[in-house]
Design a protein around this nucleic acid. Structure first.
Length: 248
DNA sequence: ATGCCTCAGCTCCTGAGA
């Protein structure tokens, strides 16, 4: 089972690239962030034609997330239950896994697609919101890990001490950064600033993460960042991140 | 030095992203 995450920075602009990428990389689940569109504009038909089911949680201008999948999503949840939020940043669902006689109880994987707040700068209202959001996310994921032992979280974050604390605290709940389970090229980034030839100079950040639960960790066989779409005309500033999870 | 690019929108400037 292949799972991927991609911040597309406007699905309106990037839909052709998403369709091309899915054709070349027919992953089982793709989490999208920054749709920047309302649900009525979501390209459900084009994705269906490409062989993908879709669950979307859109918003005008900013944010917006979706889960695309080969098999239908089950038990879809939007945003963080118990955390009042007027932004569309999180969507989660379960996806069927090939049944294994050895582990009949592990018949599905739970995927949480999350667009973490930017936070702008420490001391700002946006940073306060980010901290509250991260608290809300962590207390929710603590219980989600009990309910769904086979859980994958796809997220984005950056780098003050407080933010690093939050990412570490999230991982300390029992998650593993899939990227770090494998030898990786040096300076592996998932985002490069549009300005100043960021991509050409490989000045970037690795801010798109796939975090897997304890139960899934031994089954992750590969994790890579696909820089190919960043070389397109009018690329997203983010590249897709992919994990391959082998069936037992 | 907080712009350099890209996107959306109450669109020819502004806010936000990271």
């Amino acid at each position: 089972m292949k799972l991927a995450t991609w911040n597309v920075n406007s699905l309106t602009v990037r839909l052709p690239q998403v369709l091309d990428w899915l054709q070349a990389n027919p992953v089982d689940v793709l989490a999208l962030q920054e749709l920047k569109m309302t649900d009525d504009k979501f390209p459900m038909a084009a994705l269906a034609q490409a062989g993908y089911h879709a669950q979307c949680f859109g918003q005008k201008t900013y944010n917006g997330v979706a889960l695309l999948s080969r098999t239908p999503a089950q038990d879809v949840v939007k945003n963080i239950p118990g955390f009042d939020d007027d932004m569309a940043r999180v969507i989660s669902a379960s996806f069927a896994v090939a049944p294994s006689p050895a582990k009949p109880d592990m018949s599905s994987v739970r995927v949480i697609g999350a667009y973490f707040p930017n936070g702008q700068e420490p001391g700002s209202d946006k940073f306060d919101y980010k901290m509250a959001w991260l608290e809300g996310l962590r207390s929710w994921i603590r219980t989600e890990l009990q309910t769904y032992p086979q859980l994958v979280l796809k997220d984005q974050i950056h780098c003050t001490d407080e933010e690093r604390y939050h990412l570490q605290a999230l991982i300390a709940l029992g998650l593993h950064d899939a990227h770090r389970l494998f030898e990786q090229p040096p300076k592996s980034y998932s985002w490069w600033d549009y300005r100043d030839f960021g991509f050409k100079r490989n000045r970037g950040l690795r801010i798109d993460h796939i975090l897997v639960s304890h139960a899934l960790k031994p089954r992750v066989s590969a994790c890579w960042i696909d820089k190919t779409p960043r070389k397109n005309e009018r690329p997203s500033d983010h590249a897709p991140v992919v994990v391959d999870i082998t069936e037992l």
